[in-house]
Design a protein around this nucleic acid. Sequence first.
DNA 1: CATGGGATTGACT
DNA 2: GTCAATCCCATGC
Length: 201
Amino acid sequence: MKALAADFYERPVLEVARDLIGCVVEYGDGAGVIVETEAYHQSEPACHAFVGLTPRTRTLFGPAGRAYLYSSYGIHVLLNAVCERPGIGAAVLIRALEPVAGLTTMRIRRQRARSSPVQVARATELCSGPGKLTQALGIGLEMNGSDLTTGAVRITPCRSGCEPVILTAPRIGITKAIDLPWRFCAAGNPNVSKPWPQPPR
DNA sequence: CATGGGATTGACT
DNA sequence: GTCAATCCCATGC
């Protein structure tokens, strides 16, 4: 399957975040369907680009369709897709995947960092979080700035006819701009990270 | 150069 | 529910 092209990413970040649900992240032998995303934009303080152009945010302000990778809490690597025009700092955080290929390798990678192998037995525990999925796929900081449209980390389109029902909710794990409903989840998918979004009643 | 705060996870009470 | 691990990098002196 052909990777999504740059014009897919060169749109308002909220649209891209929603449209990425159902698309597939591929790297090496591993792959997973995106089931959870969050949008970040330079206009709001939770976004790294809010502080302007620095060495850290260079990728964020670059061309759309690149991977923005950074280290969180010094332990985890988080994968984002850069969006909008160059000069605009915006990206979609990929928060969770439904594993579809390379599960054996994912289990080995995830098990390495754990004292207990119990949790990695479940497929739904392999990529149910932004730090987990990069570890499961083996994506490291060295991929920062790489091109998602032509590079080793690829994102391919949602299979037509398989578009999931999407839930919108406030972003999680942040302390600023916590009110913005910029989190998108595939409704009812068990691979979504906790806390699960409140379903509409 | 020193300091402090995370877009998290997993272990433990 | 609480809490620590661990490091990048923005900020300030």
